[in-house]
Design a protein around this nucleic acid. Structure first.
Length: 345
DNA sequence: AAGCGAAGCAACCGCGAACCG
DNA sequence: GCGGTTCGCGGTTGCTTCGCT
């Protein structure tokens, strides 16, 4: 790639883009003599560059073991995972990714991953759900909603910040949905009689990835909420209309005679209504109105269809949207795992 | 086709750590 | 132990390409 004319420093050392000729000289020299002394290398190799520039060119571009091309999804997952632990320790992260340089990873993080996380409602610095007004409006404004699956993670992130009960409820519902793709038994959920632990720092990536498990969260067979079948939403006033968060225990006992089944589109609208309600009431409230949730009507929050992507598309060469979808599913999967680990599901 | 801003990425810079005499 | 030198890391810059108007 030919760039602008090279710059020169006062001391005669060249700066700027490397030419193929310079590359060849550097490669030839290192292949013959190695690179023990970067300081003296350029002079010996016949290059008008500083040692630092040579080292950088070799390390980031000319090294024979460098892997070129797009980052695979596995690599991306690893970067996010490592960054959540190590922070901006690019060289340490690079050490775990054969063939990738710290500079490349740093650039990829700043140009791709950071944006993706923000889009998912996750703070790329702290790796926790973030709440800002823009995010909030995009989540709550149906016209701005382009990916319902994407918004699940945003919703969960929001929920966790607004109300620990809400996060527990949503994740339980979503996990239940994976076991029974058509219906959710609310009574069964209530009978658990204990709220799961709220994770302080939800993980949204895991190693190794378990595509089959994640696929269980693919909300397939979605219908237009407006066309929801009557059997899918059966509100019942005998269900306690309030869950009181009190050290993880439900204070009101559920009515064990009633079962409520509803489809995922209905769930979508319920979550949306719940969040709207929660936001308008008070942040950090320890209660939410279950009865209102069950009675809430389908809104236009959820677009009419979702594509049921196959897991095999989430490997190398996945589109941006597919990656977003997968990342969102991973969030739900990991939160669900947290529930499973606590023996609640 | 031209202009312009955004995105992507190679390369630079400054600083601290490691090394060495 | 100390001072000078070298190396490596992370943040930043600036050039090129891309896409939109």
């Amino acid at each position: 790639m030919e760039k602008s004319p090279s710059r020169e420093k006062n001391n005669g050392l060249k700066k700027g883009p490397w030419t193929p000729e310079e590359d060849r000289k550097l490669i030839d020299y290192i292949q013959k003599h190695g690179h023990c002394k970067w300081r003296t290398l350029p002079k010996n190799a016949g290059l008008k560059r500083c040692g630092k520039s040579c080292r950088l060119r070799w390390a980031n571009y000319l090294r024979p073991d460098i892997k070129r091309g797009r980052f695979s999804f596995e690599e991306e997952e690893a970067i996010i995972q490592l960054h959540s632990v190590l922070g901006n320790k690019w060289s340490t992260i690079a050490a775990s990714l054969p063939g990738r340089t710290d500079n490349e990873i740093k650039n990829y993080w700043n140009t791709h991953i950071k944006k993706r996380l923000l889009k998912m409602g996750i703070d790329p610095v702290t790796h926790t759900p973030c709440l800002d007004l823009l995010q909030l409006s995009s989540i709550l404004n149906p016209s701005l909603c382009t990916s319902p699956q994407l918004n699940y993670s945003g919703l969960l992130g929001m929920a966790s910040m607004l109300n620990p009960n809400l996060l527990s409820f949503l994740t339980t519902l979503l996990s239940s949905q994976s076991k029974n793709p058509d219906t959710i038994n609310t009574n069964q959920l209530l009978q658990q009689n204990q709220l799961p632990q709220v994770q302080n720092q939800p993980q949204y990536c895991s190693q190794p990835m378990q595509l089959n498990s994640v696929q269980a969260f693919q909300p397939n067979q979605l219908q237009d909420p407006i066309q929801d079948s009557p059997a899918c939403a059966t509100p019942n006033t005998s269900i306690p209309n309030l869950w009181q968060y009190n050290g993880g225990q439900l204070e009101q006992q559920p009515d064990q005679s009633q079962t409520h089944n509803f489809s995922l589109p209905k769930l979508n609208s319920m979550i949306n209504n719940l969040l709207k309600n929660q936001v308008s009431q008070s942040q950090n409230s320890s209660t939410f109105n279950l009865n209102a949730l069950l009675h809430s009507t389908a809104s236009s929050f959820c677009p009419s269809t979702l594509n049921s992507s196959s897991s095999t598309t989430f490997v190398n060469g996945a589109t941006e949207d597919e990656r977003d979808t997968y990342c969102s599913n991973m969030l739900m999967y990991n939160i669900s795992n947290g529930l499973n680990d606590s023996g609640l599901l």
